[in-house]
Every structure is written in structure tokens, then in C-alpha cells.
């Protein structure tokens, strides 16, 4: 088992003929992901290293039976691409695009909720998702993810920050701890999939025995997750929150990470998680070490 994606997931890449789409789409395929098609309007009939390209997502779905899509198109076109995938019946859309206007994101999110409840969006501005050994959609370097062991214990990872997602995978790899699925939810203001969505899936997944969570300053997603954990998560957890030393009121790189009005501080988030029984590390390495202790005790 794994959450959201597994060895049976058939993936199309929207933007396969573009630089990012081609590079990461082919890397995903090399990893073993079933990349069955690509979509670029006007380029139907072509192929990218043997992967057929279609004009529309609907055509790609009809021809390949794809169930997931990897959106790797520029910000201007990302909203349209996500909604096109949803309209074509794709159940799981991963959007790595960075720099989508917040107004567009809010509109896409609420359109999906209302008109396409069967579609889950991961991202935008996220590294993607990897179920090690089975499926890798997005930009994660597959070799840094430890394949889960058949009898466990295995860890599920959920992270709001891109590069810290890799850091978390890497920490567990160093310690030989298997990962069931690693989900990068992205740091944008309106992520399609949030911490709680992933925590619920991990809690229900028999292959996941413990959960590692990486958050960052800004917003209240970590505090909401802490409340959810307190009430619903029985699997042991470790966590790290980036931005302890970030000055207040400064926008740290992307829309997600800003502390304002004393809200969304790293300390507040760490306290909330600790109160919910999560072991909180002061840096990613420490969170990995805490997870190693948790796993050793399982």
C-alpha cells in the first residue's frame, strides 16, 4: 500500500514537450512510473522518447486510461491545465508550477470543490509525490527515497516545503528507514491538498507506521493539523518547522512563508504540535533522529 499513487497509477504529463515537463517526465518514467502520455496542444501525433503526445487531456485519457496528471506548464497556463485535467476525469493532479497568482489558485481550488469533487489537486508550487519503488510524480530525485520494507516499519512524510521534503527523505534514507509515500503539499496560500488530507490517508494506510511532518512559518495549517492529530492520529509522529529565526513581517521567498501580527510563528506551531504528542526537532536532522527513535521502538 501507499497513499494517493502506487505502481498501478497511469500518469500523463501536461507540458511534456516543454523543458521542465520533458526533463522530469522522463526522469519519472526512468524511475518506474507508468508515464503513458503527454499533452501539448497542437502537438498530437508526436512523441517524446517514445511517449505519445496528445492535443488534449481528454484525448490522452481516452487513449491511455490515465488516472493521474503531472502539470508542468508556466503559471499563465497552469489554472487552465488543472481544470482541463479535472474535466477529463483525472482523479489526481500534481502541479509543480511556481508563481501562479493567488487569485487564480483560489478560483481553481473552489471550482474543483464545487464542480469536480472527484479530483484531488496536489500543489501548486510543490515538489510532487513519491511512493518509493512504485511511482514518482514531480521533481523529487527518486534515488534519495528509501523503498519501504515489506514488514515495516515504514514512515509517511508530508511536507509544505519543497527542498525540505528532499531533506526529510534524505535523513530517513541515511538511517535506512523505509518510506511508504512522501507528499510535498507545497507552500502556496491555497494548496489543493493540505496536511490534514495526508494525515488522514497515512492514518488509514496499513503500510505506514509512523508519520514525519515538515512545516514552515506563516498561515495556520500546522496549528490546524495539530488539532487534527490530537483527535484522530494514533500513529507516532515527528516534525520540524522551518523559520524559527525568520524576522516578522518579512516575506521569505514565497507566498506561504510570512509571519504577520504575531500569528504563524514557528514557536507557536512547534508548541501546538508538541501538545498534540508530536516529537518536534529543532532542525531537519533532529526530526530525522527523533523518527529513528520512534521507528526503533515500534
Amino acid at each position: 500500500m501507499a497513499i494517493f499513487v502506487n505502481e498501478n497509477t497511469k500518469v500523463i504529463v501536461q507540458g511534456l514537450t516543454g523543458g521542465q515537463g520533458k526533463y522530469h517526465g522522463l526522469r519519472n518514467r526512468d524511475y518506474g512510473t507508468r508515464v503513458v502520455g503527454g499533452v501539448t496542444p497542437g502537438k498530437a501525433g508526436q512523441d517524446v522518447d517514445g511517449i505519445p503526445v496528445f492535443d488534449t487531456v481528454a484525448d490522452a485519457v481516452a487513449a491511455t486510461g490515465a488516472t493521474a496528471s503531472f502539470v508542468a506548464v508556466p503559471p499563465k497556463f497552469a489554472s487552465g491545465a488543472i481544470l482541463e485535467a479535472a474535466a477529463a476525469g483525472i482523479g489526481f493532479v500534481v502541479c509543480i508550477t511556481e508563481g501562479i497568482p493567488a487569485q487564480d489558485e483560489a478560483k481553481v481550488y473552489n471550482t474543483l470543490i464545487r464542480d469536480f469533487p472527484g479530483t484531488r489537486l496536489l500543489g501548486p508550487n510543490c515538489p510532487g509525490i513519491i511512493s518509493p519503488g512504485k511511482c514518482n510524480i514531480g521533481i523529487t530525485a527518486g534515488e534519495i527515497a528509501q523503498v519501504p520494507s515489506a514488514d515495516g516499519p515504514n514512515v509517511g512524510i508530508v511536507s509544505r516545503s519543497g527542498t525540505l521534503t528532499y531533506q526529510a527523505l534524505y535523513e530517513l534514507k541515511q538511517k535506512g528507514i523505509g518510506v511508504s509515500t512522501c507528499v510535498g503539499i507545497g507552500g502556496d496560500p491555497v494548496p489543493g491538498t493540505n496536511f490534514i488530507d495526508c494525515l488522514a490517508e497515512f492514518q488509514a494506510d496499513p503500510e505506514t507506521h509512523a508519520i514525519m511532518m515538515i512545516g514552515e512559518i506563516g498561515g495556520s495549517a500546522e496549528e490546524e493539523a495539530a488539532e487534527y492529530i490530537q483527535a484522530n492520529v494514533t500513529k507516532p509522529m515527528s516534525a520540524y518547522i522551518a523559520g524559527v529565526t525568520a524576522p516578522a513581517g518579512k516575506k521569505m521567498g514565497h507566498a506561504g512563508a510570512i509571519v504577520s501580527g504575531g500569528k504563524g510563528t514557528a514557536q507557536g506551531k512547534m508548541d501546538a504540535l508538541a501538545a498534540a504528542g508530536v516529537k518536534v526537532g529543532l532542525n531537519p536532522t533532529e526530526a530525522g533522529e527523533l523518527m529513528a527513535e520512534i521507528v526503533a521502538a515500534l
Binding site: 516545503s161 525540505l164 531533506q167 522551518a242 523559520g243 525568520a246 521569505m252 521567498g253 529543532l282 532542525n283
Partner: peptide
Amino acid sequence: NGAGLAMSTLDVVNQVGGSAANF
């Protein structure tokens, strides 16, 4: 690379007794 890793780098520099000149 990445806002999260950059913030985390600031945190770690701080934890080992240094101070960051920038993000």
C-alpha cells in the same frame, strides 16, 4: 534553493551559534 531550506539554513546557523547575513 527553496524558501523552506533557506529558512532552515538560517535556523541551523543560529543553532550552532552563528548569525545569518541574509536570506
